[in-house]
Design a binder for these strands. Structure first.
Lengths: 226, 226, 226, 226
DNA sequence: AATGAATGAGGGTTCATTCAT
DNA sequence: AATGAATGAACCCTCATTCAT
């Protein structure tokens, strides 16, 4: 595919699993797991039905491989970036957080969020995997950043977990949207997902930053402890 | 169910569509359309497989009926509430907008958002219906409120459409979450969706309100006690 | 249906079986027994599905009733006519035989031949009934007439059974045709079934009548005795 | 089937369509299209239910393939034979026409006539196909032969189309009979279909040949012009 | 390793028949 | 007697998976 017009047999063989995973992700995200035929996946990967089963023992295992592939390292990579970063909490969110989500949005990984949402109820393992590998570390990462901002006086004191969700849920939703309504030929108005990602982070930061300028706002609530 | 131990044939016939719609919604949302067997829906509704087809000509029509039922009037009802409301834009968001979403979240309608997301690619009519009946009017309703807040000086001038999405996407995501990861037996941390709905609205409003640090914003509320 | 706008309940009840038989014949002939739904028959007879089962215990019994009704007495009636007739064998064929088939062709009975052909293999009783009540007496009746013509010198001596089939098979085929290709909207050329019935009888008689009194026709074969 | 006890996969694949067509023809003719289960056809062809659908996309397409197979070339073959023939019109009918029908009668094609009759009302395409490919060219072929016999003085002048039907309808009927009553275990009397085919042609020729050479036969009617 | 023909369990849908009203 | 709601066996067709080549 890259330089050699005819990739060597060895090369092809090594590329198979990736081709199958890519094809599977695309189709599972588009149509859902149950509505995707194994043969379709094989065809899109350019192999025959039988070949798929040489690499994955069942459609379900293929699904799990797809999800493992995309969510395994993303979080760790984001965490590493965040640790390297020098700057305020707001800057960290604006730089690293937004870049991470923009990359995810632009990549095939964005679809995995839709896939998870669609399929967790049918495959309980997925829930466990996703919670452990993605949700918990991801939320903790953001929570730490926010907490740091509060501790430094950059942000007002507030419910850290709630802030985390205010930041994360729209990001996930934008990714999901890309593969559902956003992929349909309907009036999209003027919604620009990439611009929104940055915008939303800014808006949340506006809500976070200390709004003194004088006396502490009395009507501002104490940290809410749920 | 009420007084009569054995409801009359006539009564049962009248109740069937609703029973079937309820069963179908639950199962379609839980497992997805393709993975739900028609017979399961019938069973859950307490009838036999054949009976389902007396009321809906196909599984697909049942899906469409489910969606039509739940999204048909909700928007209009929300709009009517909003029109009745007297108060600032922020109050309107805090009162009407939050109540509307809390009700949706607590009702079966919340599942419809997951259903739409899951199935829209497989049933293009759905996209058209959802965009026309829900997305467009819903976004316009919120946009008008935000615009009014800007016009009155209550909010700073900003991209209205972006604000709308910052408000709406997390609401939708919370509903979707309820029926995906949220329904699985996994570590939920301390995420309280209902509290989040109100919290997020507050946070966005904090980001919206004019922050010139001069005149007190009159619309800024006293401590809210949930 | 006749004079009274609203037939009495009693009248309706008495007419039901006939209405059902008529509807059944029409539909069974048109679409075949297996492809006709019991409810269609009921609808066409103007009653509900349940009512059909008050009069006939099953679809199959309805089929048998339909056939019994139409073939029971026709043969006997034809035989009586033939017995009354005074005249030559050729005249008998031209008058009585042709009239009988023209009447059958114009009546709903014509469809029964198609029905028998279509369904005998699925309902062995039918074969027995049809052979006993229709085929055997019908062929014997014609055979006797032909034999009489031979005995009287009006016809040349020849295989009586073969003559009988030369006379009967086209008659049956015309009836069958009426309800198969003949009922379809396709190029019918100029085939006039009623004219053909009379024509064919004439042609066969031409072949039967003694052709002595001149040169022997060389292409005429000796009477073949099987 | 030939030498190899186990035919190769490739060989089997090539043989499948014919096996399926044969099985389908037999069963469709015997029981009718609607009353034949797809699985029965598969079983009779020695394959599983699913395999049938690898070769034909639906039961209906299988039906159409069956009919196309059997009626596609038969007429053309008959026409070619007729064109080659040297001899009188009567000889042509006795030789070529009778041989053609005897072959058809003895082959599986005979069943197709029953099938057409039975199914033509349910599948309008069939009517069009059958009229265009079989009825029209078949009748024209016979009509030309009869016309030639009249032109040469071999036959008396008469309605050519009527003669054609007098020749053809009984042939078709004999084929149909073979697969309906004729296939049932009932008193068949002494009806020999093959003998009848030849006999009937002779009888019609007797009716056609110029019967001058002596007194006008009084029972001969003037040519009827419809 | 790769193929694709074959399988057969499974699921959507129909429809003969029953039975409460 | 008449209705038509309900049932569930049966049938068409699909598709995950296997396995001979």
């Amino acid at each position: 595919m890259s330089e050699t017009a005819v990739p060597s047999r060895r090369r092809q063989k090594e590329a198979r699993p990736q081709q199958l995973l890519d094809a599977a992700l695309t189709l599972f995200v588009e149509k859902g797991f149950a509505a995707t035929r194994a043969e379709e996946v094989a065809q899109r990967a350019g192999v025959s039905k039988g070949t798929l089963y040489l690499y994955y023992p069942s459609k379900e295992e293929l699904l799990k491989a797809v999800i493992r592939e995309h969510l395994g390292s993303r979080i760790a990579a984001g965490a590493a970036e965040a640790d390297k970063h020098r700057g305020s909490a707001a800057e960290l969110l604006r730089e690293v957080f937004s870049r991470w989500w923009l990359e995810v949005f632009d990549s095939a990984t964005s679809g995995v969020f839709k896939l998870i949402i669609t399929e967790v109820r049918n495959f309980p393992d997925l829930a466990e995997f996703y919670a452990r590998e993605v949700v918990v570390p991801g939320e903790q990462l953001i929570a730490r950043i926010v907490q740091r901002g509060i501790d430094s006086g950059e942000f007002d004191a507030m419910d850290v977990s709630a802030v985390v969700h205010s930041l994360l849920l729209p990001m996930v939703m934008v990714c999901v949207h890309k593969h559902s309504l956003g992929a349909c030929a309907v009036h999209h108005e003027d919604f620009d997902p990439r611009a929104f990602i940055r915008w939303h982070i800014d808006l949340v930061i506006r809500g976070l930053v200390s709004q003194r300028g004088g006396a502490r706002q009395p009507e501002r609530r104490a940290v809410r402890v749920r």
